[in-house]
Design a protein around this nucleic acid. Structure first.
Lengths: 299, 299
DNA sequence: TCCGAGCGGTGCAAAAAACGCACCGGTTTT
DNA sequence: AAAACCGGTGCGTTTTTTGCACCGCTCGGA
């Protein structure tokens, strides 16, 4: 796509922070790239870069242009996938930013199922916290986000929401394992782990435990990896907390999971979202549709 | 904007219906244009034109591409006007498709008022019937439409609506002129004119008069020009019908206008609309905002 | 304080892309 | 059957873009 080259070069310069670095990255001479940028600004009628001694930086007009370029690129991708769609072969690419919990079981299963019908569609899946996920949507670098309780929410359009109770994961021989559901205050009396505060699980536990008198959240192990914490529980007897969608203890191990009793600890909300107002490419839209159906069945 | 040349050429070919004609229109050789089109299809990955013996025609993929090109062009214009906006001078262009009635008084006044604050903004204003107006919105060739009761409405997003009673325009010495408002059945007993059936006024009058017994709409003069019909009433004593927003009989003539009594003849609705889901350029958006305020004051 | 590294910008010649012209093979119109 | 158009192609020419060398500038560290 020759006519999009200018946009690619501009994005390259933004990424690199200087024309010379960008030129190197994109295998072109600095002078050629420089002239392209200057010619573009000329035709556009406004400068889009501030020239600094150590490189260039977008000015406000450039910020607007960048937003335009990204949206334009995404719409072009949508056009191509629409066209591919009517020529029979369903092609396209779906990019998902999701919480860690979705990585081991849920998304692999969903994607495999989708690709059974549409083997031409490719995927990119990345674990992102809820703030990052929303930023990726806004930058058009992800089509869909599947996260727990995103925070800012201004650009986040909720496509579907499902409540998830937090589960306590412990050894099968743990005294609390006998009960079908456990109370938070009981868990906190035993050694426990907790995710770091950028995760929704931690926030929910914090607020719930603040309402308890004379006992508080006091994690022995704190980590950003739910996997690590859960596995650690097999070595030293310790309770970890996690959303059940990230759990599959069926075939495995000596671990069990028990939901935290509902009134004491509120449910978390797993949200499927996209950039507000954006029209998704067909492949992404259909995958989102499948996710909604699967999540509905989960309820 | 060098990188949009391909799009312009493609639009030219679509307009002309053949590569050779388009080449002539755009002052280029047929061979050069032909190669550009072929190269574009090559890079795009799909043919966008059917080759016919007498020229070319868009195929379905091409239709999608055309829609993309138009939307892309409109968003680019929006970008430019946004950038112009932050550099102080408010520039931009507003294109309005409107009913005839808005041409003589309402829109000139509105535009003059807007341009007092923003002399950099240019306008294009064209009279269109309600079907044409909606098509122009969909093709991005108009930003705003101001029409009476558009028909299809699928792509028409109503920004603001205001009820307009139909007025009967007659000589000041007409017997009905004594009443503050007149009844349709009385008007129809006198010689009268009517617009042709593509105008909302005609449709409303038709349906209203069908409910009347033993009297019907029977225009002596039928025209597409409200101006003509109104002026004709000065020569031969005749009632014409029109929405009051197109009337300004203050300084003028020996004509008066009287509203048609409400329960007998329903009000028409003047609708300000845009393409559904489209984000308008700043200039158009602000002008629409001003229109809404003025129409609100009119109520 | 000076000097080198890194930056954006420019003149010029070489390379690449786009173009115009002439022409081909095909179909439709006359 | 001929003329009129149509899209497509080979080739020499023109225009545009690129690479190279170099300029002037700012900044950071010896």
């Amino acid at each position: 796509m020759r006519h999009l080259k200018d946009y690619e070069f501009i994005e390259g310069v933004i990424r690199a922070g200087s024309i010379r670095k960008a030129a190197e990255d994109m295998h072109i001479t600095a002078s050629a790239l420089n002239r392209r940028i200057n010619r573009f600004e000329d035709e556009f009628g406004y400068e889009i870069f501030e020239r600094l001694p150590r490189g260039v930086r977008l000015n406000p007009a450039g910020e607007m242009l960048l937003q335009f370029i990204r949206s334009q690129g995404s719409e072009f991708a949508r056009l191509r996938s629409q066209v591919a769609d009517l020529s029979g072969v369903r092609r396209g690419h779906v990019s998902v930013a999701c919480s860690q919990a979705l990585l081991p079981y849920f998304l692999p299963h969903q994607i495999a199922q989708y690709r059974e019908d549409h083997p031409g569609v490719t995927f990119s899946v990345n674990a992102r916290d809820r703030v990052e996920a929303e930023r990726e949507l806004a930058e058009f670098s992800s089509d869909l986000a599947l996260v727990f309780e995103p925070q800012t929410m201004v650009d986040f359009e909720v496509v579907f929401a499902i409540a998830q109770p937090i589960h306590a994961v412990m050894r099968a021989d743990h005294p609390l394992a006998e009960q079908p559901e456990v109370r938070l205050r009981d868990c906190l009396r035993h050694p426990h782990t907790a995710p770091s505060s950028k995760f929704a699980v931690r926030n929910i536990l914090e607020t719930a435990s603040r309402r308890l008198s004379s006992i508080s959240l006091n994690p022995m192990i704190e980590s950003e990896s739910f996997d690590f914490m859960r596995h650690y529980g097999q070595w030293e007897d310790m309770i970890s907390f996690q959303f059940p969608i990230g759990l599959d203890l069926s075939g495995a191990t000596n671990l069990v999971s028990r939901p935290l009793a509902a009134p004491e600890v509120p449910h978390g909300n797993l949200l499927l979202g996209q950039l507000r107002g954006r029209v998704l490419p067909v492949a992404s839209a259909r995958f989102a549709q499948q996710l909604v159906q699967s999540l509905q069945r989960l309820e």
